[in-house]
Design a protein around this nucleic acid. Structure first.
Lengths: 215, 215
DNA sequence: ACCTGAACACCGTTCAAGT
DNA sequence: ACCTGAACACCGTTCAAGT
């Protein structure tokens, strides 16, 4: 309780985003209405329009925030951190003293899937491009950042001989696709008996085998 | 022009679905309203409720129809057909006289990506499970069918030595993930300079290499 | 059986007006 | 600058009533 419950000061925007994220995870994007948020925050139904041009702008802001936290987790995993979901941001740039590339790639994959299954509706917003306007340019930029985190690891793997030659960005696209696709299958309940962790381990094994130099 | 333009006979359901699919590809799911469809078809706004319990039921029906045509294309590709989009359903069960497994797996992947980029909004409906009711059970069933088509090819690959040992269904999940994920990246405009076909070929190469028996 | 019309309770968005 | 209240044009859904 850092203050009183009064908005009308400039924190309405932040309050809207916070409440919106809660509603999103609870009820999905369909259940998210500007009027509902305003009601929840005890403010007039027209107030949100001061902070978000329209409903899509709110959704875009949520997606941007989602990508920001996803990328933080990916960076942490790429640096060799455990794939736990603690909020710490220990990025640790001190060179490649963080275990073999394969293991960190695996950690990256697990971190991604953790985030994905924990934020189903948010991930949907992040990857469903709506009306290619300016704010979705920011979204694309953040998506590229995700891919770059993977690409840098590919480059390192190429130096250590764990990864085949080729454009690291394209190799990263392949790795990203595999992991993102697996998360999609899991969320769509298409994995059935296969536990997600087991499917994930097999996917990582196949992926890493396929990425290895072909002699 | 197979008849007159009169509904009110029992073909309203089919007409709704047809029009809905057109609106879906033109404007996405957000732009799809029951009242709008009724207006387009010259029928009262309450008429659709006779054929679809609610809006979600219409969306589910669209997803079911999407999976049905996707699976037909996948079956055709798995049988060795070209990945062209002709409507023919030549399944051809006459044994494995349809080229090497790797090539057909690649054809399967291309057919999938073709469908995905050609039916963006539909694919979204197909893989975004809403409120786990009975009709989404049918959706899951159809998704399993997609995976089974891939799994059967994996099994064949195992017999011919092109694919490593292991549960064919799990291997199919990995392959499916890769291709589905790549389609997602393409649709989200995250592939950039990389042409989709090029990204696809690399993904298939990495995937097939990873699937090969170890040594 | 199938559709209509009215009704109800929601929406997003805009805009004058208040403080 | 920030919010309110009213207004407008949409929704989905339900239900008596028509044919």
């Amino acid at each position: 309780m850092t203050g009183d419950g009064s908005y009308h000061h400039g924190n309405l925007r932040a309050a809207l985003l916070e409440r919106a994220e809660a509603v999103l995870t609870a009820s999905g994007a369909e259940g998210l209405s500007l009027r509902g948020l305003a009601r929840d925050l005890g403010v007039s139904h027209a107030a949100p329009s001061r902070h978000f041009r329209d409903r899509q702008a709110l959704l875009d802001a949520l997606a941007v925030s989602g990508f920001t936290t996803l990328n933080a987790r990916l960076r942490s995993a790429a640096a060799g951190g455990a794939d736990g979901a603690d909020g710490a941001d220990g990025v640790d740039e001190t060179a490649g003293a963080a275990g073999p590339v394969g293991a960190r790639l695996a950690g990256l994959g697990r971190a991604y899937v953790d985030f994905a299954v924990g934020h189903t509706a948010l991930l949907d917003l992040m990857f469903t491009v709506k009306h290619a306007d300016d704010s979705s340019a920011e979204l694309r930029e953040l998506g590229h950042e995700s891919l770059l985190i993977v690409a840098r690891l590919m480059e390192e793997g190429q130096r250590t001989g764990a990864v085949r030659p080729g454009d690291p960005v394209q190799l990263a696209q392949v790795a990203f696709s595999t992991v993102h696709g697996l998360a999609t299958l899991a969320v769509a309940a298409l994995l059935d008996d296969t536990p997600l962790s087991e499917a994930m381990e097999l996917a990582l094994e196949v992926l890493l085998a396929g990425l290895r130099p072909g002699r």
